[in-house]
Design a binder for these strands. Structure first.
Length: 874
RNA sequence: GCGGACGUGGUGGAACGGUAGACACACAGGACUUAAAAUCCUGAGUUCGAAAGAGCGUGAGGGUUCGAGUCCCUCCGUCCGCACCA
């Protein structure tokens, strides 16, 4: 019987149920095999999944299913990064509780993910907004606190005066709150921090061990951590000029070698010395205020001029007690880097140069670039930051920059100012401690109580979790926890007198910093089941977007270490890295559309007229023109979403998966386009027809292998085993687009083989068909099951192994090698694979086109690369 | 400004320093069909040529090499990250 077209939507449901019934994706099912933890970054439940999710989860699923077939004990879990602002915004806009909104989205998206046929262990599903999860996070917080990893300090934050909340730097756009549009203020607030800086060196050093991470990500993290080697140098202040409480100023520099080029000292507007000086000087106070208001956006910084204000203070040069330089407050000195104070060497730093020219300060060249003459060397308005030989630098003259650094450092270390050395070497990091306080409702409550008498008191562990109140209100801006009538009232855990709860919640990046640990034992009543974690960790393959290259991945690396140091976690071996291998897949992007009223429009809410540069978008509902915006990552906020449901309903999940995997290298961004989906759908039908024909012609399961095969059968067998070999390797390397091409190629050979006849071809075709099904199994799992059943099996293909190819079929006796003359291809040669180089050479020289190309010239040299190429040089 | 990646047909893209353009999409022609869909076959980087074939071709220019899309240098372009970080 010739079967119908493969009805993907109907059959996919069937196979999903079969998998669920057999419960085959439960982790730990194959205890004999080595473990393999495959993880894709868990999604934020924003509403519905889009093609970006499909790409991410299809990739992870191919890898997980392949590893299953290879005999690994696979852990492949899924959960929800479920706290966050969009839920609160939805509450404000639609009067729906953030929890209700979030769980509805989870239900929708879970259903969509299930319809993709992913090999997930749903028994381990977690949602970070559930007390089952966040109570353990509160416990971790308390243990971090005990260990000094969590602490409280006052710090400057971006404050949105309309929404009454702190904003992350990324949420400030051109100096305004991204939601309210209000001018953001800098406010001093007491906040909770994690001491990630304690781990800066380790986080930097261990990047070297992450050989299965993209180089790019490691580099980005290294830059973010930003280690620099320099010195702290204390400059005495001339007591005649300085306020009483200050007799020195400490600066940080990476260039002590340029000290003789110094012409000023500058401090940040928030530096204590600036504040003290400002008290007596209203003009200076006004200048400091101006500095604080300055924007932090890129444009602002580029446009900003180097401005300063002379405090009237004079600092004494470390190497010359008679040399005094002015102390300025300068707008380009940052309080939170180094000591908040610098010395300026205009000839060696462009900012210092700009500053010096503006305020007429001396510019003394101290480094002579290679090839310059000291007598004629002049410096104008461009500072020289490169290495060279020291000049105008007294005892450093003639030394190289590096030697001068050492010499200056040595002197400063031995030289005393007061009782202490004048300078000390100091490694400085750009990385700051992680501020985790957020003035929001929909986050993990920080388990702390504020008591008038006892101060800041941790909640007792027996009182965990500190749960969010259900009955919060979202009708006005600000923190719903703070204005809740009763929630924050409690008894002090220490003295039992009335006290108030901390109303800040944790940054949602905290939630995602340890979920991969929780997945190893999601029901454990301690945060971590150490044994389970030790067995499963590290994650063997982590897959997610490059946009998390720094924050999430750095926080997670920090968290794993902090959890080790608080005794929650231990790794096998001597690593503390949570993700052994990382793959950053590219984004799925799409054009954006905006209506005339300024609302974002979904792609399916617009239609198009014209082509190329003339192409115009029309809003379908109103018939009015819509603006075509830039191509961006699919995101709910810009509404440039394509939902996979339509494709799944029409062509099936396998088609969506196959198409997403087939076209582009997985690490590259792709612009979503429907073109090609139909082609993928046709290929599915083609596979089905091939298998159908095999089932028809060779209905019996594979019996004894024939002793000999004719050439037609051998071609098919070779193609099959080669494809098996290659697709295995390419899937392992996550090069899915190449694997797709290899399967295509094989299917072409098999299909044409079916139209032939020859000795052993029936056996070979049946074998090839079975191998083809296994090969498509990880990518198109439903189709593979259907085909497997069509061949008469009543087992699940998902449980079938990935067989080893027959080595003998991977090599040819005869090879075709190209023949070049002077590097130009002239002919090719079919010869025994094991032919001696001399024989290959002789055969090549006899070829007609070779003789012709030589035009009678003598052969100077012949290069033979066995089994590849011959190059005749003449 | 600093750091990094990338640049190959109409399109997405293949190619351990070894036959550039695999595989696919789109396209064109043909077969089957009353017709369409589906399917199958064929063609196709570009120039010259009826063809056989030859020349030119991986952003531009140079270099290393028997041989360069691949390695090195310079430039152009695109993208990404960081950024008054001392």
């Amino acid at each position: 019987m010739a079967s119908e077209r493969y009805n993907a939507p109907a059959r996919e449901k069937h196979w999903q149920q079969a998998w669920e019934k057999a419960d085959i994706f439960r982790a730990g099912a194959n205890e004999k095999g080595p473990k393999c933890y495959v993880l894709e970054m868990f999604p934020y439940p924003s509403g519905r999944i889009h093609m970006g999710h499909v790409r991410n989860y299809a990739m992870g699923d191919v890898f997980a299913r392949y590893k299953r077939m290879k005999g690994f004990n696979v852990l492949h879990p899924m959960g929800w990064d479920a706290f966050g602002m969009p839920a609160e915004n939805a509450a404000m806009e639609r009067k729906v509780h953030p929890g209700k909104w979030t769980y509805q989205n989870i239900d929708t998206m879970r259903g969509q993910l299930k319809s993709m046929g992913l090999s997930l262990d749903w028994s381990r599903e977690i949602a970070t907004c559930s007390p089952d999860y966040y109570q353990h996070q509160q416990k971790l917080f308390l243990d971090f606190l005990k260990k000094g990893i969590a602490y409280r300090k006052s710090s400057k934050v971006n404050w949105d005066p309309v929404d009454h909340t702190v904003l992350a730097n990324e949420q400030v756009i051109d100096g305004r709150g991204w939601r309210s549009g209000a001018l953001v203020e800098q406010r001093e607030l007491t906040q909770w921090f994690f001491k990630i800086t304690d781990y800066a060196q380790e986080l930097l050093d261990d990047l070297e061990t992450l050989t299965n991470w993209p180089e790019k990500v490691r580099l980005m993290q290294a830059n973010w951590i930003g280690r620099s080697e320099g010195m702290l140098i204390r400059w005495a202040l001339d007591p005649k000029t300085a306020p009483q409480e200050f007799n020195e100023v400490e600066v940080y520099t990476t260039r002590p070698d340029t000290l003789f080029g110094a012409s000023f000292v500058a401090v940040a507007a928030d530096h204590p010395i600036a504040k003290a000086a400002a008290e007596k000087n209203p003009a200076l106070a006004a200048f400091c205020e101006e500095c604080r208001r300055m924007g932090t956006s890129v444009a602002d910084i580029e446009a900003a001029e180097k401005l300063g204000f002379d405090t009237g203070l004079r600092a004494v040069h470390p190497f010359d007690k008679d040399w005094r330089v002015p102390v300025y407050v300068a707008n380009f000195v940052l309080m939170d880097y180094g000591t908040g104070a610098i010395f300026g060497c205009p000839s060696g730093d462009q900012r210092d140069m700009d500053f010096a020219r503006r305020y007429d300060l001396p510019v003394v060249p101290v480094i002579l670039p290679p090839g310059e003459d000291a007598k004629t060397f002049k410096i104008k308005n461009k500072a020289n930051v490169d290495d060279g030989v020291m000049i105008n630098s007294r005892f450093l003259d003639g030394l190289t920059t590096t030697a001068a650094f050492e010499e200056a450092a040595k002197r400063l270390e031995t030289q005393k100012l007061g009782a202490k050395p004048q300078g000390q070497r100091k490694v400085n990091f750009r990385l700051r401690d992680w501020g985790i306080s957020r003035q929001r409702y929909w986050g993990c409550p920080i388990p702390i109580v504020h008591c008038k008498d006892c101060g800041v008191v941790p909640v007792s562990e027996k009182d965990l979790p500190v749960k969010l109140p259900e009955d919060a209100t979202f009708d006005k801006p600000g923190n719903p926890l703070d204005r809740h009538p009763t929630w924050k009232n409690c008894a002090c855990p220490k003295c039992n007198k009335p006290a108030t709860r901390e109303t800040d919640t944790m940054d949602t990046f905290v939630d995602s910093s340890w979920y991969y640990v929780r997945f190893t034992a999601p029901q454990s009543d301690t945060p971590v089941d150490k044994k389970a974690a030790q067995y499963w960790l590290p994650v063997d393959q982590y897959i997610g977007g490059i946009e998390h290259a720094i924050l999430h991945l750095l926080y997670s690396r920090f968290f794993a270490r902090a959890m080790c140091d608080t005794g929650h976690l231990a790794f096998q071996g001597n690593t503390r890295e949570p993700f052994a291998a990382l793959f950053t897949q590219g984004m799925v992007t799409h054009e954006t559309y905006k209506s005339q009223d300024g609302y974002w429009l979904l792609p399916n809410e617009v239609k198009f007229e014209g082509e190329g540069g003339e192409r115009k978008a029309i809003e379908i509902s109103s018939g009015r023109p819509a603006a075509i915006g830039s191509i961006e990552k699919m995101s709910k906020s810009k509404k440039n979403l394509v939902d996979p449901d339509d494709i799944i309903a029409h062509y099936g999940a396998d088609c969506a998966r196959w198409f997403m995997l087939s076209d582009s290298p997985p690490e590259r961004d792709v612009i979503w386009t429907e073109a090609g989906v139909a082609g993928a759908g046709r290929f599915i039908q083609r596979i089905w027809r091939i298998v159908d024909e095999i089932a028809e012609k060779y209905p019996d399961k594979l019996g004894t292998k024939p002793a000999t095969f004719g050439p037609e059968a051998l071609d098919v067998r070779k193609a099959a085993h080669r494809a098996l070999d290659q697709t295995g390797k390419t899937i392992e390397a996550l090069r899915f687009n190449v694997a797709v091409a290899q399967i295509h190629e094989f299917a072409n050979v098999l299909q044409s083989g079916l139209s032939k006849s020859g000795q052993g071809l029936d056996w070979a075709a049946r074998e090839a068909g079975e191998l083809l099904i296994r090969m498509i199994g990880p990518m198109m799992p439903h189709l593979a099951e259907e085909c497997w059943a069509r061949l008469g099996y009543n087992t699940l293909l998902a449980n079938e192994p990935w067989p080893a190819p027959e080595a003998a079929l991977l090599v040819d006796d005869q090879v075709t090698i190209a023949v070049q003359v002077n590097g130009k291809r002239r002919d090719e040669l079919v010869i025994s694979r094991t032919a001696a180089n001399a024989d290959v050479e002789a055969a090549a020289l006899k070829l007609e086109p070779v003789i012709k190309a030589l035009e009678g010239r003598p052969v100077k040299k012949v290069i033979v690369v066995p089994q590849r190429i011959v190059n005749v040089v003449g």
